[in-house]
């Protein structure tokens, strides 16, 4: 199985130290979701999680999938990650069909998913270490990334000694340590308190500004989706359909003051209305 695709290409931070910048070959990470439909369950009682959907995400775009719980947004993300095999259609990353999880697509989970028996540094170095041949010094890579997420001081700690927000930052650093072409994030800040969440969002945008890789970010938080994304795909459980593809034309870098920006509020309202109309329709259908 070609886990990496050939040749192995790494998107490296623009301002990366010289040891890393030599790896940089191309900035790609095009995601093509071609007519992907996903159904679960036994014959006759199939549950449609995602109805056939086609979406193309150009390299370097930050795309948020926004929708209520149970609308199939995580399932769609898992299809791109390779955990779920589409029932119909296929996902292509840079032209290569996805058939399993792989280090070209970094993944950040909602639940804390750090290895509790490894220190923070060992966690981040895990990817480069097991891919051995590509990275002469996993530890150095880990330290570079920890520096970037502001946790260099905690390299020798164990995950349980860190707060939830810090653990998620380590999770992001770990996903980036393989220099993936795509970063997949499944409600990564969902379990954090709202103050921490805001700080994390800003931190994520700063990191992304350096890496400029493609991000697919699943969330149910409208403000989060609009604040982070270049584009918001609004999803609804009717069943598992992308009902709107909204371009977020807000300038970058984005600051917290954006929350009172008129354009921001208009876009937020648009997302809100889109979701509301859809859920009203669903509600009325249930009652007839």
């Amino acid at each position: 199985m070609h886990m990496l695709g050939a040749p192995f290409r790494k998107a490296v931070p623009v301002s990366a130290p010289s040891s890393l910048s030599t790896w940089r070959e191309a900035r790609d990470g095009r995601i093509e979701i071609n007519n992907v439909g996903i159904a679960f369950g036994p014959e006759g009682r199939r549950h449609i999680a995602v109805s056939p959907t086609s979406i193309e995400i150009p390299p370097g775009q930050f795309v948020c999938i926004l929708g209520p719980s149970g609308c199939g947004k995580s399932t769609l993300l898992n299809a791109v990650a390779g955990y779920v095999k589409p029932t119909v259609g296929q996902v292509l990353v840079d032209g290569t069909p996805v058939d399993a999880p792989g280090p070209d697509r970094g993944m950040v989970f909602q639940q804390y998913s750090l290895f509790p028996w490894k220190t923070v540094r060992e966690n981040v170095a895990f990817g480069p270490r097991i891919l051995g041949r590509y990275d002469p010094s996993p530890e150095a890579t880990a330290d570079t990334l920890l520096e970037m997420v502001g946790l260099a001081k905690f390299a020798n700690r164990y995950p349980a000694e860190l707060s939830g927000g810090m653990q998620q930052r380590v999770g992001i650093a770990r996903a980036l340590a393989n220099y993936p072409r795509v970063l997949l994030m499944d409600e990564p800040f969902g379990a954090l308190d709202s103050q921490t969440r805001h700080v994390m969002q800003e931190n994520l945008l700063k990191i992304w500004a350096e890496f400029r890789i493609t991000v697919l970010f699943v969330t149910h938080d409208i403000d989060e989706a609009v604040f982070l994304g270049d584009r918001v795909l609004v999803m609804s459980a009717s069943p598992g359909t992308i009902i709107a593809d909204i371009t977020i034309d807000l300038p970058r870098p984005r600051e917290p003051e954006l929350a009172v920006d008129e354009r921001f509020m208009a876009l937020r309202r648009l997302c809100h209305e889109t979701i509301r109309q859809e859920s009203m329709k669903a509600f009325e259908q249930q009652n007839t």
Binding site: P103, M107, F109
Partner: peptide, 18 residues
């Protein structure tokens, strides 16, 4: 073993033995 840890390892490129 938490399933999410196995999934995380797979996405980081780990094979069965690893």
């Amino acid at each position: 073993t938490p399933e999410v840890l196995v999934r995380a390892a797979r996405s980081l490129g780990a094979r069965q033995g690893q």
